[in-house]
Write a protein that binds this DNA or RNA. Structure first.
Lengths: 336, 336
DNA sequence: TCGGGGTACTTAATCGATTCAGATGAATTA
DNA sequence: TAATTCATCTGAATCGATTAAGTACCCCGA
């Protein structure tokens, strides 16, 4: 590896001079600085990240903490899209990405310790459970932190607008004349709570009664679970006219179940999804759903975090809401 | 942060002794070693990764390089599942994961330089194009490397058996009596070439003619592209009786198109996918496809890599083939 | 001619951990 | 008793980069 010493030798100056020149210190003459920069480029020099991290306490590395109940966090399309855009934006701004988890090999450490161990300059957190003490410890620590879809008041956050998204869907369906709305929800998380609360509140505002049996638990991104919930709904004495699915993938499980019962969408049953993944828009009928802008959320999160890292003094926590968008497909019949 | 110096002070020994005790050096007495280990645990000590990396040239960090044409690598289910399992297995073995890419911030560097910059102990490579010079440079370097779905003879690799997988599908369809097989393929990569070659070879072996117009290009994981390709196939004078899709998601695009033409699966058209993602098995009819074991591939890759890192002397390149499995759904009619 | 004040550099300490080459002291041997 | 051996621990250099403090040199004014 080319080190600062090699450049110093090649240029006949001290290592300190090289370091300063490369970092744009004011007390190096133009000519020397240019010469050093040219030599560095010629030799293919890149600073050693470990040495820098050790000396400066800055690693130019940001941690990503994705924790969900099942552990397969990344493989959910919503998360992987966020991850991809956090990664892209961070790289653009000069930072690398490392995953933060608990228990690396034989060492047992929590998230905070792991982040310190790797000298992460900051961490982006997505979690199904923000009440977990390990998550709170990290969020409350001196390490800059941005949370996704949840907000602590001591750190910045990027939130997809679940309240407004769900309200938009309910109002859309209501406008089409539906009054018997069933709601299949994912595991209880803060996001789920928001969507459910928004569903209930909007229904109340529109004078739509919501019988308890119309609210069914399932699991996010699990077509099987939503298929089951769908079957239960179809067994009710008074069937709903429209089913809200926890997400687009879950809808596919429901779709299968509806077909089995010989019900066609939207003639015999209307449905809406959530997420707006690309797949939902190539299905026929096109799914009516609410698109969450995962790309925007990821890059916004990276920007907020890095801004905080680089301006610790002037920084104040900010909550950014990522606007979604109702995708009006054709899975909701007009029975007005 | 608790450092080795803190422990040394607390125990009244030198820093050297602490380091040796924690690393199990033989010239430290049992009692001293125990006392030091206990103190370390009490104080919540964890070694500083940067300091270690600097001194030892070992970072306990492995790089993951996912590069595809579109750039959205991670968000493809197949890749994200591999990533998830590389991550899980690496963590179990004491390693963290960092993404390797080109051009971090203002610094322009290639993959190899990036891996050096972060002192990665090794790199797992998944790429759409293994002929790219930056990929070859990394694979040919002194950095331990494991490739996925491609093999250089100088490094280990984990390959999903595309040859056998495709052969199994063709034979299955042939056994059901189909003789007019259309093949929609993804972007031309080494994987695509293997599948296509295997398709052609197996067809030849079974005396199935393959007209050029039955081979259609599309894009992996893009329902729109495969929908288009499907439309073209349906416009042919002599339609195929079975369509091979590049992957399960692509099939969904085809499904939509087939429905539009009033064709039902498998009565009017048989189809097979590839990948065996969970979704494919909850659809009705259940998709006939070939399951690639992404989880096994990921953990196998991590194990191979770490074995090489930890035993550089006795190491020899190994090629591991991950067996897949034909999932016999009900999207292929029996016209025998 | 001497010193004040810049400019442009160098020296050396430092970050936290590892490791080689001693050093210490007790026990053993001639 | 003096020399040797062994187990156990310490001192100091080192990895590559940064940075506070110090030095050399030049220019200028009185």
């Amino acid at each position: 590896m080319v080190t600062i010493t090699d450049i110093a030798k090649a240029c006949g100056v001290s290592r300190a001079t090289v370091s300063k020149a490369l970092n744009g210190a004011p007390d190096i003459s133009r000519e020397t600085a240019d010469r050093i920069r040219k030599t560095a480029a010629d030799l293919g020099y890149h600073p050693n990240a470990a040495a820098r991290a050790l000396k400066m306490g800055r690693s130019y590395n940001i941690g990503v903490l994705f924790s969900d109940a099942t552990g397969g966090g990344i493989s959910h399309e919503y998360f992987s899209r966020i991850l991809e855009s956090v990664k892209a934006e961070s790289e653009r701004l000069g930072y690398d990405i490392t995953f933060i988890s608990q228990n690396i090999g034989r060492m047992s450490m929590d998230y905070y310790e792991h982040a310190k161990y790797r000298s992460c300059d900051g961490v982006v957190i997505a979690s199904a459970d923000f009440t977990a003490p390990e998550i709170r410890r990290l969020a409350a620590s001196e390490i800059p932190t941005v949370t996704l879809d949840y907000s602590f008041d001591s750190c910045s956050s990027v939130i997809s607008d679940n309240i407004r998204g769900m309200e938009a869907l309910v109002r859309f369906v209501h406008a089409k004349g539906h009054r018997r709305l069933a709601f299949i929800h994912g595991e209880i998380t803060s996001v789920t709570q928001k969507r459910l609360a928004s569903f209930r509140r909007t229904c109340a505002a529109l004078d739509i009664p919501v019988p308890g049996e119309y609210i069914r638990p399932a699991v996010y991104h699990d077509p099987r679970a939503s298929g089951l919930a769908t079957r239960e709904l179809l067994a009710l004495a008074e069937r709903p006219t429209c089913i809200f699915y926890p997400d687009d993938l879950s809808f596919l499980g429901g779709m299968t179940e509806l077909e089995k019962h010989g019900l066609s969408i939207p003639k015999d049953m209307s449905v809406v999804g959530y997420d707006g993944i690309p797949l939902s828009q190539v299905l026929r009928p096109r799914l009516t759903t609410y698109r969450q802008d995962a790309e925007q959320m990821g890059s916004e999160a990276a920007r907020l975090l890095i801004e905080q890292i680089e301006n610790p003094d002037t920084w104040l926590p900010r909550q950014i809401t990522a606007e979604g968008q109702l995708l009006e497909g054709s899975t909701v019949s007009d029975i007005g």
